[in-house]
Simulated scan of single mutants.
Amino acid sequence: MPKSINKKVLRIHLLVWFLFIIWETVITNLLYDMSAPVINYVVHYSITIALFYLQSDIVLPWLGKRKGKWLWIPLFCVIFLLTYILAHWVGEIFLTHLLGKPVKPFYGMTWQSFLRNGYRGLFFIGFSTGYYYLYSFIAERRHAQELEKQQLLAIISQQQTQRELDLMQNAFLKAQINPHFLFNILNYIHFQSIKSAPQISEAVTRLASVMRFAFDIGDAEETVRLGDELDQIEDVKYLHSLRKNTGTLALNYELAVCDLRLIPLVLLTLAENCFKHGDLAQTNAQMELFLADNQLHIRTWNKIAKAKPAISTHTGLANLSKRLQTVYDRNYEFTYGPDGDGGFSVQLKIALELTLKPVSSTTTNTGTTVLP
């Protein structure tokens, strides 16, 4: 059933009906030498076209949805033929009075006209039925093609996803191989320099420890023990102490914080920020961790260096802020920026209850505001 007809389809329908009416009119005039006023053709063909679409667009779709539709078809054919004959008879009555023609008995209704209109009714029943099933076939075919297209797109999408998974798997395998190779090299350097250059050997050991911690957290839980990350900061402090004319990071913390858990690399990110952007030659940077008001407090401070670091993306604290937002929603406070006295301070406060166990990305909102 055509539920909606666009302009292109409408033009095709009008053209087909126009050609059919011209063809039938010409054939009738040539074979039977019959002609009639234009209004006569308009009335009778209007009735025929209306009944044609009444059947194809309304009656047949309605029959198609009913149970035992094949039992309804004979009754429908009889009703349609009687309707067709009656409609054209009413049209003839209308034309008789409109054109002032002599009134015939029963307005020209005879057995001959009855059978003639019955034959034409069967003729248009066939055309209308054929049109309905042809249109339905085309619509179902298009629907099937659309489903096939969607299935094909789904298969392509699935293949692309599988390809991406394969690439990620390969990258993961490479990530497993490369650190293994790197640690072997560091281990070799350590043993080769342990006697001749013990300081270098110690530096390599500390570097390997920090790197192994960073690599291993990818397989760890969502949070890490703060005590383990504090140990890595001690290694980072040692590595930075190898440089001449530089200070260090004064690390102060309560022992109670060591068993608390936090998302990984928070402390290392803050320490790196102090070492990279701080002027530690004049004043040591500071980091402190303590508990107060049922919250874990983490603070850092460093004097701002006048010279900018050679390599800096300026995204460390911004990325940390996004990570905190993703995991802790609004259950924390994170502020950082210049303090107005030539220093740069960072402060993180997080509810103590969230540091006692691993967290998920859907935590309860307590209404604490995240500061930029």
Score class of each variant (00 low, 15 high):
Leu289Pro: 12
Ile155Met: 04
Arg323Leu: 14
Arg116Lys: 08
Leu99Gln: 04
Tyr188Gly: 00
Thr368Leu: 03
Lys237Ala: 00
Leu182Tyr: 08
Phe137Leu: 08
Leu260Arg: 02
Thr369Asp: 10
Arg141Asn: 11
Asn302His: 15
Asn302Val: 06
Ser136Gln: 10
Arg66Trp: 07
Leu75Phe: 15
Lys69Leu: 02
Leu81Arg: 11
Lys65Leu: 03
Val103Arg: 04
Glu353Gly: 05
Met109Leu: 15
Ala154Asn: 11
Gly227Asn: 01
Ile194Phe: 10
Gln169Trp: 06
Tyr45Asp: 04
Trp301Lys: 13
Phe18His: 00
Phe181Asp: 09
Phe127Glu: 03
Leu296Gly: 01
Thr300Cys: 02
Val42Cys: 13
Ser361Phe: 11
Asp166Arg: 14
Val257Ala: 03
Pro179Lys: 05
Ile5Arg: 13
His314Tyr: 04
Thr364Pro: 02
Thr283Gly: 03
Lys65Gln: 00
Ala310Gln: 15
Glu148Val: 06
Leu51His: 07
Val9His: 12
Lys303Trp: 08
Arg142Tyr: 09
Leu81Phe: 13
Phe181Ala: 11
Ser136Tyr: 09
Ala305Tyr: 03
Ser136Asn: 07
Asn273Tyr: 01
Asn252Ser: 09
Leu115Gln: 12
Asn40Gly: 10
Val38Pro: 00
Lys7Ile: 14
Tyr131Val: 02
Asp216Cys: 08
Ile155Gln: 12
Leu134Phe: 15
Ile156Tyr: 04
Leu167Ala: 03
Trp70Pro: 01
Phe275Gln: 05
Thr246Met: 01
Ser4Trp: 08
Asn187Lys: 00
Ile200Asp: 07
Leu115Val: 14
Arg299Leu: 12
Leu291Ala: 06
Pro37Asn: 09
Val78Pro: 11
Thr364His: 10
Gln192Val: 14
Thr205Met: 02
Phe172Arg: 09
Ser209Phe: 01
Leu207Cys: 08
Val210Met: 07
Ile263His: 10
Arg323Trp: 10
Gln150Leu: 13
Phe52Met: 04
Arg243Lys: 12
Arg330Ser: 04
Leu60Ile: 15
Val370Gln: 10
His13Arg: 05
Leu268Arg: 02
Pro372Glu: 09
Tyr133Gly: 02
His190Tyr: 10
Pro179Ser: 00
Lys69Asn: 05
Val370Lys: 15
Asn178His: 13
Asp231Cys: 13
Phe52Tyr: 08
Lys67Arg: 15
Phe172Pro: 01
His88Cys: 01
Thr25Trp: 00
Thr248Val: 09
